[in-house]
Simulated scan of single mutants.
Amino acid sequence: MNKAEYYKKAYPIGTRIRLIHMDDPYSPIPDGMTGTVTSVDDMGTLHMKWDNGRSLGICPDADSFEIIRKEAE
């Protein structure tokens, strides 16, 4: 199983996530922000709908976050 397949199983659509920290120098999501996984692409990026209205994706290999609630598979 490659990373993208693993992330798709680990973070299914609808999973709620709390961001701990994002290393984006240009337009990061604030630490502590919560959001919902809307998709996982073939590169393994978790595409998010953040509760503040933004839609910036997170990279599990680079960004720190925790699962608040995982959707039933």
Rank of each mutant, 00 (worst) to 15 (best):
A4V: 03
D42P: 00
I17Q: 03
S39Q: 06
G32W: 00
I29K: 14
M33E: 15
Y11F: 15
V37A: 03
R54K: 15
E5R: 03
Y26M: 10
K3L: 12
Y7L: 00
I29F: 02
E71G: 09
D63G: 05
N52A: 04
E66R: 14
S39V: 06
T34S: 14
Y6D: 06
N52L: 01
L19M: 10
S55F: 03
D42Y: 11
S64V: 00
A62H: 09
T38K: 13
I20E: 14
I13Y: 07
G32F: 02
G35S: 11
G53N: 08
C59F: 08
V40G: 00
T45Y: 13
N52T: 01
L56M: 06
A10W: 04
K9F: 01
A10G: 00
A62T: 08
G32N: 07
D41P: 04
T36N: 04
L56F: 06
E71S: 14
S27Y: 14
G14M: 09
I67G: 02
L46T: 06
D42C: 08
Y6Q: 11
M43I: 08
T45C: 10
T38C: 05
I17G: 04
G53R: 08
T45L: 15
S39W: 10
S27N: 15
G57Y: 04
T38N: 05
M1Y: 07
K9R: 14
D42E: 14
D31K: 09
T36L: 04
A62V: 12
S27G: 12
V40E: 00
W50S: 12
P25S: 09
L19F: 14
Y7Q: 01
A10T: 10
L46D: 09
K9V: 06
A4D: 14
C59Y: 06
G57P: 13
Y26N: 14
I29W: 01
A10F: 05
D24Y: 05
F65I: 08
I67E: 11
T45D: 03
G32S: 10
M33G: 01
K8M: 15
G14D: 11
I58C: 08
S39N: 12
P28M: 08
Y11V: 02
W50A: 10
I58K: 01
D41T: 08
S55V: 06
F65C: 05
E66I: 14
E71R: 13
D63M: 04
G35K: 06
A10I: 03
P25V: 02
M22N: 07
P30E: 13
P30G: 02
M48E: 05
D42G: 10
K3V: 03
P12E: 09
H21A: 13
S39D: 13
R18F: 01
A72G: 08
T38G: 01
T38I: 15
